[in-house]
Simulated assay, not measured.
Amino acid sequence: MRDAQYTIDAFHRGRFHVVQPKGEGHRSGIDAMLLASLVASDGPVSVADLGSGAGAAGLAVASRLEKAVVLLVEKFPVMAAYARSSITLPENAFLADRVRVIEADVTLTGKARLAAGLEDEVHDHVIMNPPFNHAGDRRTPDSLKAQAHALTDGLFESWLKTAGAIMKPGGQLSLIARPLSIAEILAACGKRFGGIEITPVHPRPGEDATRILVTAIKGSKARLAFRAPLIVHGSDGHSFSPDVDDLNNGRAAYKRRGKVSGRA
């Protein structure tokens, strides 16, 4: 990492910390914490965080769930280096032996995917915060950030194909995305995932949703469900609503409505 080009940021009210780029690349915040909150388990659980960046979401899972083992999967070497630095922080010693990083392109298939360390049917949960900017969106001059945020054609299909391959039967897919991607997400789930639950996330009361939380179960035949919306900010428009504050700070999980055998 370049000297003085990063910050060390506290999450879960100082429970764990993340080394993040200061002037380039993607910086994690509430999106990563909401994504992490979708993983709920009372026992040992294996979690893969695809496109993990500096590792905030995966580290948040390991912070909240003492029996979780987490694999951070990141394509860009510079971001993988931030993730490795995060793991070795003294503040993160309590989770360091349960988190590891591999550099791999999520879109790899077949033998190339296996060679990169993405093994078949080993994870109970796969989480992801895929790139979300469409071609018509205003582009950032930061090339690393632009690549991390650029939504390309077929992205959800390729990412969910990998998620399904590395996930155990009955495992849970969790992702956060923009609402305009909902059709692509449903199409990519196809016959791989069922029991899809979608939660719209609204910044404030009366404002349109800017994110959706999606969970689904590998091989499930259960029907699609739309859940009650999450409102990020309370009546004052600035502070977090109580439910979101709990999710953002690792005090609670956002559990599925549908029950999954062997999982909370």
Rank of each mutant, 00 (worst) to 15 (best):
H26L: 14
R15W: 00
T140A: 11
H12S: 08
L118M: 15
D105S: 10
L35W: 03
V45A: 15
A112S: 14
R100T: 08
A112N: 13
D120Y: 04
H123G: 07
G14W: 00
N133A: 13
S63E: 10
L72N: 04
D42V: 05
T107E: 11
A135I: 07
A115W: 04
S37V: 07
A93W: 01
P90V: 03
A93L: 07
D105T: 10
G110P: 03
T107W: 04
K22Q: 11
V69S: 15
G43S: 15
M128K: 04
G110D: 10
R98G: 10
H12P: 00
V39R: 01
E121H: 10
A104T: 06
E103T: 11
A93F: 00
V69M: 08
G25Q: 11
E121N: 11
L95S: 06
K22Y: 04
G29D: 12
I127V: 11
F132T: 06
V106L: 09
A56G: 09
L34P: 03
L50Y: 03
R27I: 06
R113S: 10
E91M: 03
V18M: 08
T88N: 13
M79Y: 01
R113Q: 12
M128D: 05
R15H: 11
P44A: 15
K111V: 00
V99N: 05
L65G: 00
A135D: 14
G53C: 08
V99C: 10
L34K: 02
A36N: 11
R98P: 01
A135P: 05
V61I: 11
D105P: 03
G110S: 06
A115F: 02
R113K: 09
R113M: 08
G110F: 01
M33K: 10
G117W: 05
A57W: 03
V47I: 13
P44W: 04
V126W: 03
H123I: 02
L108D: 09
A116D: 13
G51N: 09
G23S: 12
A135F: 09
S37P: 06
I102W: 04
V70A: 10
G55H: 04
T140N: 15
N129P: 07
H12Y: 09
V99E: 06
R27P: 05
L108G: 08
A48F: 01
L114T: 15
I30N: 15
L65K: 01
P131A: 13
R139Q: 14
V61F: 09
V69R: 15
N92H: 02
L118H: 04
D42S: 15
V61H: 07
S37Y: 04
A96P: 03
V47G: 04
A80C: 10
R84M: 05
R27L: 06
M128F: 06
V39T: 09
S85P: 00
G117M: 09
H12R: 02
F132C: 08
V106G: 08
I102E: 07
F132K: 09
K67E: 13
R84C: 05
A56H: 05
A83V: 00
V126D: 05
L59C: 14
I30V: 14
N92A: 08
D124T: 12
T109W: 00
H12A: 12
G14V: 02
G117E: 12
P130N: 13
N133S: 13
K22R: 14
S52C: 14
P131F: 05
D137S: 12
P77H: 13
G110N: 07
V106F: 02
A60Y: 07
E91L: 01
A32W: 02
E74H: 10
L89C: 06
G110Y: 02
